[in-house]
Design a binder for these strands. Sequence first.
DNA 1: CCATCAGAGTCGAGTACTCGACAGTCTTGT
DNA 2: ACAAGACTGTCGAGTACTCGACTCTGATGG
Lengths: 252, 252
Amino acid sequence: MQRPVPALQNSLLEALPPADLALFAPQLVPVELERGRLLYDPGDPIEHVFFPHDGVISLMTLMENGAAIESTTIGPEGALGLMAAVAPRQSLSRAIVQTPLRAARIGAERLHEAWERSPALRDLVDRHTEALYGHAIQSVACNALHSVEERFCRWLLTCHDRISTDTIALTQEFLADMLGVQRTTVTAVARSLQEKGMIRYRRGVVDVVDRQALQQFTCECYGVIRGTYRRLLGSEPPAEKGERPPRRAAGG
Amino acid sequence: MQRPVPALQNSLLEALPPADLALFAPQLVPVELERGRLLYDPGDPIEHVFFPHDGVISLMTLMENGAAIESTTIGPEGALGLMAAVAPRQSLSRAIVQTPLRAARIGAERLHEAWERSPALRDLVDRHTEALYGHAIQSVACNALHSVEERFCRWLLTCHDRISTDTIALTQEFLADMLGVQRTTVTAVARSLQEKGMIRYRRGVVDVVDRQALQQFTCECYGVIRGTYRRLLGSEPPAEKGERPPRRAAGG
DNA sequence: CCATCAGAGTCGAGTACTCGACAGTCTTGT
DNA sequence: ACAAGACTGTCGAGTACTCGACTCTGATGG
């Protein structure tokens, strides 16, 4: 695991042909953002696009009473605000940094200029948009059908896939908000998972102990969403962490 | 209400400058589709794009056990399969005709050719995609937070907005599926709404009796989704049916 | 050392919805 | 006229989650 800090880990950037990447690579600014940082609220103009290398951004739908339900997440397999490469856009969601984040940032207009000149980038943006939509509609069904326990497991796995540690800073209160349930419900579920040896919980921190067990307990949505990203972007969230790598169809 | 059958009612087609529309208008085929018709299942290649004039198509997320939860709807304010104008795509959802549908249909490749030549069409496709995404993420939150009664009302209003009658053919069983709840729950809610005089229910048919009351009973999601379409596509589902027109900011 | 506070644990009453079963009713075909 | 099937109504036990209230614990700062 000891390696020199890699220059690039974002799957989208890596998927671009070097010549296309070169169109905007000079404008990419490496940033490190702390947990909890608010990047966008609904209605905010999208001025920057973020390509995460390591870490998770949560996209949340904001309700009138202040409730904020997580709709999708952005990690190293994607980018935040990428639709703004096509044309100026306002954010529809609240975007919050969920785990300490290393990312590459670029001004939306700069990226737009590259977008105009690069068919490969245009194609990537389109497929990313489609994958994000696929993520969202799976969450629609998940929230209608699946238990808090299943969704809790899915959330942990999704986050764990996108970071390089087994430890996630996260209060039960905040998770309850994102899942749209009471904190007491999260407490009960967390205790149950801890008793089963799948996670360890301490003040504001969860440790993922048994990934495989989490995968057995979560709903199909976890796998479906991974599959959507893989199919549309030809990559998956990078962290495999001991599970066998999913088969990749040759030339698929 | 008596008027000659209009040549066009789809908002997207109407929003295009005549010269851009002319690029593919000759290939548009008018179709009438019966209720229940299956247009796409997940994985199906999108060969045709449908522009509804009158009627509703439901997009549903299909689960492994066969459950099909409605994620978004397509009506005269939008189009089905529009992302296939950009590049060949597979459907992510099941698409079913929800009410008798008049629409214009075009082959995806034909539309793609127009898309290549028309910046206005490209822009429209992008904004439609964004609106559909906005619809989906609002449904994510709605399914996490709101009661079956609220979602029932939202469904009725959304459908009612997009058709030209007050009568909707719809079994409780099917609605229960789309909302992801038990049929008995739908029965109870339907009875409650009927007792309040908001709807009338008979075998497989609902009549919308008191639209205003439905709007008071539904959740904010109904209005939010309408607003998203209006903002991004400069139009709303056409039917106003006696409600006062939503204020439109001058030049907004 | 103490005070403060954020975060987690617990408890209990209440509610919304599930799930299976069965009865009633309307529609259609023969 | 009759059967068959589709749709709705109802009932009751069970469960998941809500909601408010209160306590406990660990971290932080003065």
